[in-house]
Design a protein around this nucleic acid. Structure first.
Lengths: 151, 151
DNA sequence: CACTATTTTTGTAGTCATTACAATTTAGTA
DNA sequence: TACTAAATTGTAATGACTACAAAAATAGTG
């Protein structure tokens, strides 16, 4: 149930053959310490206070690089913008239709690996499988019930 | 293994409480006869020759309406643009990383319905589940092998 | 150290899907 | 026919993302 298989940002970049510049370290570290699946903009504005010379383009460049080298995952979950996940282990996502929150579902690792390995009759080569749940999260459920009373 | 549970576009719109204007009929009919999971732009330009008064905005409006009323599904599969699916039955998708083609995988209906029904410990309410396979389709696999020879 | 080549970062300008909005047209009904 | 509501249109705006060329930082070599 490890959230990241690397202890440090350094280690993670090295393992994926990415040269560890200060900005790259900052981005990957942010991803590793953030289970919130941030967008490029969220990463940029969070880091900007600490690194005022940081450019938005740099964040986009780094995220693209991280995804290419498989140090992070780009999630096609939100039609508005891409979300990024520093946890590259097999897991699925729950997306709340109410508040948009994205939660990890670690329990599907076995299912996902089986679906990836399986042979498919149409003869395609499956490289990865993504499983997304959409619904209402616990927080939004409790908000819905309290103010209403009768329905 | 029905691709659409309605025989006619008329029938489909009526079943979802959507008034059957000519444009709406054209769009839903296009979706029903097209397993290619088209984008808004593809739908627009395909219909434009037959309906020269058609506006791009109208296509966007109609697609939004169809998705809201669950007469079609908006697929968050491609970060560039939304793809639409007129088949609202439980099925998953295979997306080719080579050519971008989207294929239906009808075989997962049972799995999807089980995952939707399942109780989750975190207490969220799961409304729907989407399962996406990514890899190389059969066509692209055969293209890769022919020109190379040795590798 | 000095000098050069390469990598990384920057900022601006552009692209492109999608939406907001107000005006116009069409359909439904008395 | 006239009035109301729904549907459609076209333009302008939004906003995420990318292209690109210049500037800055870094690494390598004598």
């Amino acid at each position: 149930m490890k959230t990241s298989r690397y202890k440090t940002a350094q280690e993670c970049l090295k393992a994926h053959n990415i040269r560890p510049s200060l900005h790259r370290l900052a981005v990957i570290e942010y991803l590793m310490n953030n289970a919130a699946h941030p967008t490029a903009e969220e990463i940029f504005s969070s880091l900007y206070s600490a690194i005022p010379t940081l450019s938005r383009t740099t964040v986009y460049n780094i995220l693209k690089l991280l995804a290419e080298k498989k140090a992070a995952i780009s999630l096609d979950i939100d039609p508005r913008q891409a979300h990024y996940d520093g946890d590259t282990s097999l897991h699925s996502h729950f997306i709340c239709l109410g508040c948009g929150a994205i939660e990890d579902m670690e329990s599907d690792a076995g299912l996902l690996s089986e679906l990836t390995r399986r042979k498919y009759p149409s003869g395609m080569l499956v490289e990865r499988v993504e499983l997304n749940y959409r619904g209402i999260c616990r927080k939004c459920l409790s908000k819905e019930q309290k103010p209403a009373g009768a329905t």
